[in-house]
């Protein structure tokens, strides 16, 4: 009942020109947020703190009784180990490759699908196919394609006379990383296309007409008309793709399991190995925290840029 009357008051306030409804309903608003906040605190907030605590302890499930406080010991151990730096470097390589390929392919396909041609509608629908495929299935599908003995990629390249003998794409460091990147990109491109295409469709056609009248070349039209209108969507694609590349787990698990050797062992994969293979929960959580710090740091930078540009709305 109080709720109801509160809202009616709001309505009157607005007509008075306050513009903001519900000034007097903070409790109700907080109540509405309570269930969500409880869930998030219980299953995200508490774990992230717990994780920090574990990362400050020596805690290995192989010796479950030992839970000794070691301060930043795990972090120091991590920063001194070449494995960490190798995993960090591979993460950077992997992320840069995935993000740049997704952006280039995404812009290309979005520009294409923004033009009129017969069959465009069908391609716009089909672009959803890779997006709908779960990453695990994506990894399994590419594993089947890359197979060194009976794989479709080998079969195709051989019948086209590009290679003379079947190759183990996943058993050689460089090609394994590239194969992994390619598989992930295939899965991720549609999201970029959808976001970029929506942005392209909002560019007023008159701008191009005006540009053409002024004698602008196609490149100039892209540089001075298309690009500025695309910038915001592009930034969003960059954020989403960077985050998802750093977190990549499923596809690595199925496709390469971090190998051959450590050629595709990213930080996320290293975290998993340390935690669930070596059962070193202390060090594993220190790894996990490094991943969080890097992700959140990047997120903050991106949001600052968005905010500065005035694109960020609440």
């Amino acid at each position: 009942m109080t709720v109801l009357s509160g809202i009616k008051v709001k309505g009157r306030e607005r007509r008075r020109g306050a513009g903001q409804v519900g000034y007097d309903r903070p409790r109700f608003a907080l109540l509405l947020n309570a269930p969500a906040m409880i869930a998030i605190f219980l299953l995200a907030g508490y774990p992230i703190v717990y994780s920090a605590v574990i990362s400050l302890h020596k805690y290995n499930l192989k010796r479950p009784r030992v839970f000794d406080f070691v301060g930043l010991g795990n972090y120091l151990e991590l920063l001194e180990s070449p494995e960490f730096w190798s995993a960090l470097w591979i993460t950077v390589e992997y992320t840069l490759l995935v993000v740049s390929l997704v952006v280039v392919l995404g812009i290309g396909i979005a520009l294409l699908l923004n033009r009129h041609f017969p069959g465009r509608g069908i391609v716009r629908t089909l672009i959803l196919v890779p997006w709908a495929i779960p990453p695990v299935v994506n990894g399994m599908m590419w594993q089947w394609i890359y197979d060194s003995k009976v794989g479709a990629l080998n079969g195709l390249l051989k019948s086209l006379h590009i290679i003379t003998e079947y190759r183990g794409w996943l058993s050689e460091p460089t090609s394994a990383l590239l194969a992994l990147v390619f598989a992930d990109v295939w899965n991720m491109v549609p999201l970029a296309v959808i976001i970029l295409l929506a942005a392209l469709q909002r560019i007023p056609g008159e701008l191009y007409d005006a540009g053409r009248v002024d004698g602008a070349s196609s490149f100039q039209l892209f540089r001075y008309v298309t690009f500025p209108w695309l910038a915001q969507a592009l930034l969003l694609v960059l954020i989403l793709q960077t985050m998802s590349a750093i977190r990549s787990f499923d596809v690595i698990y199925v496709l390469t399991a971090g190998g051959p050797g450590t050629a595709t062992t990213t930080l996320t994969w290293k975290t998993y190995l340390t935690t669930f293979d070596s059962l070193d929960f202390g060090l594993g959580n220190a790894y996990a925290y490094m991943v969080s710090i890097i992700t959140l740091g990047l997120a903050l930078i991106y949001f600052r840029i968005l905010y500065r540009r005035g694109d960020f709305e609440t």
Binding site: Q20, V21, G22, Y23, R25, P26, F28, A29, L30, N33, A36, M37, I40, L43, A44, G45, Y46, P47, I48, Y50, S51, I54, M243, I246, R247, F249, T268, T271, Y272, T275, F281, G284, N285, A288, Y289, V291, S292, T295, L296, A299, F303, T314
Partner: peptide
């Protein structure tokens, strides 16, 4: 619909928790 104290903080928490990588939370 509502403007209230803590709205910004809530939005920040929601946004921030979206950024947390799952691997960081899995052990706890």
């Amino acid at each position: 619909r509502f403007k209230f104290r803590g709205r910004g903080a809530l939005l920040g928490i929601y946004l921030g928790s979206r950024m947390l990588p799952g691997i960081a939370l899995i052990v706890p």
